[in-house]
Design a protein around this nucleic acid. Sequence first.
DNA 1: TATATTAATCGTAATATTGCAATATATAGA
DNA 2: TCTATATATTGCAATATTACGATTAATATA
Lengths: 110, 110
Amino acid sequence: MGITKSEMFTAEQNALAGIAKVLGNPARIAIIQYLFKTESCICGDLVTEIGLAQPTISQHLKELKNLGLIKGTIEGTSICYCIDQEKWDELAAIFGKFLDQKEQPKGKCC
Amino acid sequence: MGITKSEMFTAEQNALAGIAKVLGNPARIAIIQYLFKTESCICGDLVTEIGLAQPTISQHLKELKNLGLIKGTIEGTSICYCIDQEKWDELAAIFGKFLDQKEQPKGKCC
DNA sequence: TATATTAATCGTAATATTGCAATATATAGA
DNA sequence: TCTATATATTGCAATATTACGATTAATATA
């Protein structure tokens, strides 16, 4: 249905899926990479850098902001977006722990 | 449009987004966690464990299989699904590297 | 105040995802 | 072969996502 039955999963499972979902789009990956590497982080730069329309970039920024990964400060008529390193590290730790899982030795199969 | 313009992004960006997208659903997170922790990994167990219909579970398994995260071996009339630890570690390394990014010191903002 | 610049929001179209019932397929055992 | 069991596939409905043009809001400057 395009709807996920979040009420039947644990908070941790929903949190992990929520993080992954926001990261599950190449435009948002590109935005994050650009914010990490560049000196300036004016929103308008992202529009030319990524190559998507301004409302589209704005929408992606909103989703990244909702998750807390980025923060924006007003710079005159522009807005400067940056990674929120503290929040990033926090989510990276949650996700990294999930990725670090090791298989239990199983007797029979695979 | 529900379509992402993947041709305008790098292979790495698409790969990262592709991994995250598959992980961006709590049912698939739950399936992965169950496969990691349990002794047995019969497909039918997942249906009762997760609480979604059998075709739905089968569909999620298919997506995990497409990404290479799991593999299934036929056990009589059942199928035994397991994590492909090697592939998991590989994807975890790719994603972990992305998560490990640190902010460049910026002069002006944020 | 008027204008230019920048970013957010609205409205909409196209496509994707999620989930399930019904059905198909495949294997094991009688 | 016939039946039971287990999984995959198909087809569909509901909802979500992505993208963009048009518009709005807010600020800076003339």
